[in-house]
Amino acid sequence: MIKKILVAFDGSDASRHAFDLANELAYHFKAKLLLLAVVRLPEPATSLELGAVLDDAREHYTAAFQELRDRTNPRGIDFTTSVEVGHPAEHIVAMAEREGCDLVVMGRRGRTAVGRFVLGSTSERVLRYAHCAVTIVK
């Protein structure tokens, strides 16, 4: 029985598809949806860029969450949202554990080998370390 679903959301098409799937599952299982966005700062952070990135992220996710809420309201599915700052995989794995989630649903970006080495693959890391089932949506 799935009671809590964590959706990792970054505004990309893949994460929107992940949200749609989680939305369907939440409707069928009457599960609670938790939506998590993680702001990853450029490294190493500089004062000027850090403030700008945080401001942009705040505006971006406020608008994106509202749009998703408008889409789910007719079906009576509500969800909680949170925005964290830092390493995405770290926060997803930690929140899934902390909240006792049964499923993590997230999109996959498909980086190159170099990109994976420099940035790491968030989905692979969540898959490796999460305590619960993980669904990766392409």
């Binding site: 794995v93 420099v118 890391r125």
Partner: peptide, 18 residues
């Protein structure tokens, strides 16, 4: 000094709570 900790951290990532 800015790059090395970042690259090392990403290459050997392990969630802190583990």
């Amino acid at each position: 000094s800015a790059v090395i900790p970042t690259v090392v951290g990403n290459a050997f990532f392990l969630p802190r709570h583990l």
